[in-house]
Design a binder for these strands. Structure first.
Length: 271
DNA sequence: ATGGGCACCTGGCTGC
DNA sequence: TGCAGCCAGGTGCCCA
């Protein structure tokens, strides 16, 4: 499900309710997430106060007194802040009960999401250690991306979704950014010009920022911490618009498969 | 190092 | 109505 804008929207929503509070209890109804939660998971978190809620790539980092809870929402996960004692429904796998009475509830039908408790710096965790720059930071720029693309044969769509090159750009925003940059998703990275990378970097930053302002994109399950959907779907140019007219030129949007994922593009606007 | 494909899992939709 | 098949916002891992 969630790409960077949806994870950032979730972060902002849960941070206010969590920061400064303390974890009174942890309820694990289903430990079989992408990685099985260890038996001691609840005990590790219990009694710890919450220092901050940060984000790195699509991971949420919940800083505690003595460690960090690393959360990933996978394809279908959500985190909501609910009143205490709210009845649990299907796929409500984990609750963090806070001293305030609030309940942070992790729901994830497909269980591709994950939770890890670590006492080392979360950036050093095996899952985060090798991640590329954040797309909205200054070290993600045209010179950087163009250098990474040299002699690479991979298609641009897969190139921008590679978390070793830039993080946070998933299947929706990869198609959207390439549209805004006027680049065909099937082009080989090594053949794209420096000036086009400049447009692409700008497009990635613009589309992710705009999506955050709209509270993310909801296709099916995504909801923010208040349980409401994101509104960026109305502003998508190509994603999930197969056969519909391009919002710039009217040409029918095409859908192709790349690496077993759907890609959408305009055959006129993108060359 | 790079690129390609599969795996993990549930649910919703389509078409017969 | 039932059921098979396909598709879905991610990413770690294995193989060539």
């Amino acid at each position: 499900m969630p790409e960077l804008p949806e994870v950032e929207t979730t972060r902002r929503g849960i941070a206010a309710a969590m920061t400064g509070d303390c974890i009174a209890a942890v309820v694990v109804r289903e430990p079989r997430l992408r990685w099985r939660l260890p038996g001691e998971f609840a005990a590790q978190l219990r009694g710890q106060s919450i220092r901050a809620v940060r984000r790195r790539a699509k991971y949420l980092l919940i800083d505690l007194e003595r460690g960090c809870l690393i959360v990933h929402l996978g394809m279908s996960g959500s985190l909501r802040v609910l009143p205490a004692m709210t009845i649990a429904l299907k796929h409500d796998h984990v609750d963090l009960i806070l001293n305030s009475g609030a309940c942070l509830r992790f729901n994830d039908p497909r269980r591709f999401g994950s939770m890890h408790y670590t006492t080392e710096a979360p950036e050093q965790h095996a899952l985060l250690r090798k991640l590329a720059p954040e797309p909205l930071e200054n070290d993600f720029n045209a010179a950087y991306l163009a250098a990474k693309a040299k002699r690479r044969k991979v298609a641009m769509k897969q190139f921008v979704m590679n978390g070793n090159l830039v993080v946070g750009v998933g299947n929706i925003y990869a198609s959207e950014a390439l549209f805004r940059a006027g680049i065909r998703p099937s082009r080989r990275a090594g053949r794209v010009k420096k000036a086009e990378f400049a447009k692409l970097v700008k497009a990635i930053k613009t589309v992710l920022s705009a999506a955050i302002r709209s509270g993310g994109t909801t296709l099916r399950d995504y909801v923010n911490a208040e349980g409401t959907p994101g509104y960026f779907r109305q502003k998508l140019f190509v994603y999930d618009r197969k056969g519909q007219p391009c919002r710039k030129c009217g040409t029918a949007i095409r859908q192709i498969a790349q690496g077993q994922r759907s890609t959408y593009y305009c055959p006129t606007c993108q060359t």
